[in-house]
Design a protein around this nucleic acid. Structure first.
Lengths: 261, 261
DNA sequence: TAGTGGTCTAGACCACATA
DNA sequence: ATGTGGTCTAGACCACTAG
């Protein structure tokens, strides 16, 4: 029975939590405590991306709370895209393989406001030093090495985005050109399935700039063309930064679409 | 008793809904039906911005459902910023006067990632024709007139944003320069308190451009300076568009901050 | 002290997916 | 047929606000 299998893991985690919080759990509501425990289990990879987690009833038994309390914890985790519910099937760890998450981290739309599939070309994948800002983002010393990826994205076969990506090295050391070129799907899907790193959120700083030399070359534009510059830091479980990305976007035919609410 | 006062309104609304949906309410879950009724009441200004709405128990009695079902409807409305809960006090119609909504529709942050208060100068407030795109956004014929506002926003007394705002005319006809200049607070707060129009969401299209002549003049920049251009349509209850705004943002010292999740 | 929202429970029934 | 999540109910108790 799946339930018993998970029990072994979960009891460990429950007790770890118990120790950390000193019994009273800081007076957080029960459902918040359970939410934390599930998040910790996700961070510690008790359940992997795409896997089925125990049913609401099993979790309720495990945590010694009612099913309604588990449900409230799951509600929030689903709203934050950590989990995915399928009625009749169960609750699953969210992945970047799902159709619906294809444009979750890519907000570039055409004039009509629709998202299009991109054609991608990997220009570079090397172990290198990185710009100073990258070291700051990861709080790492200057001796560290990063995997540096450069990618050109085209829409309707017109180059639109040139991005430089830096990934910390112990974790992504095995990443190479062949793997990137053969992969069908989003980059975050690749990171998840081959490196066990699931991106949960990102922060972007958007500015208007003049293009760098590489953008001029690969986007085929004049050096005076205004470029939408996006500087992104992406985070995995536990708010650990695991990717820094700078992209230069040609916004003649496309725009960054954002909903405020 | 406040409860009885509201009953008169609510019963009308309930019956309107009932007629529209033909009894079976399209098989929507109860809490979704109640959410719709509350949204309709907000749209029809049964309760005004900032006002207390009936308690969960009163609403439950009114709609003949359990308090838990009302709560689930309110949960979603609060998450979408339509309502605001205050424990011990009650549930209120959300406003743009609250401190927390000051930067809800202004995502410009300084290098450290913090939001700053702006100094605003109204350059223009006139009843005018508008660019063609504005007519499209409102689905209005070319005979219509709009209120056109031009505003310069500065941070640390350096001009950073120049925005042009178009508002449809029957609704905002009374808007004038004196009112705009004397108003302390956000523009959406003004629209809400003086024109009964509460913005609930907006969509932005962001591009990099060269500045228009007016931006060159008022931002004090060279015509070749890249500018972050934001084209916004803002909506009130019922997804009716009520504002079109184009802003040109100088992103030398500030950036558009966006969280993806 | 009374009324409000916030948490938690227990149990019923429904809709859906899978075998 | 079974087990899953989805909805709905009724009731208890707690935390907070205000008169």
């Amino acid at each position: 029975m799946v339930f018993l299998y998970h029990c072994v893991y979960m009891i460990n985690i429950m007790q770890t939590e118990h120790d950390n919080l000193g019994g009273s759990a800081q007076d957080l509501p029960l459902y918040q405590q359970i939410k934390r425990k599930i998040l910790l289990a996700l961070e510690q990879k008790v359940w992997r991306s795409g896997e089925l987690i125990p049913s609401e009833n099993d979790l309720a038994t495990l945590y010694r709370v009612s099913q309604g309390t588990v449900r409230k914890a799951l509600d929030e985790l689903v709203a934050q895209h950590f989990l995915l519910r399928r009625q009749g099937s169960g609750t699953f760890v969210a992945t970047h393989q799902e159709e619906q998450s294809k444009y979750r981290f890519l907000h570039l739309a055409n004039i009509a406001g629709n998202f299009e599939d991109s054609q991608n070309r990997i220009l570079l994948c090397a172990h290198q030093k990185a710009p100073a800002i990258v070291y700051e983002c990861f709080s790492m010393g200057p001796e560290h090495i990063f995997v540096h990826i450069r990618r050109l994205m085209s829409f309707k076969n017109q180059p639109v985005v040139l991005e430089d990506i830096w990934l910390p090295c112990p974790l992504f050391s095995e990443l190479n050109l062949e793997l990137l070129q053969s992969w069908q799907g989003t980059m975050y899907g690749l990171f998840e399935s081959h490196f066990g790193t699931h991106m949960v959120r990102a922060h972007e700083k958007i500015t208007a700039e003049l293009p760098n030399e590489i953008s001029v070359e690969f986007l085929g534009i004049a050096p005076s063309t205004p470029i939408l510059n996006i500087f992104r830091i992406a985070y995995t479980y536990g708010d650990h930064p695991v990717e820094v990305r700078q992209s230069q976007n040609l916004t003649n035919d496309y725009h960054y679409a954002n909903n405020l609410s």
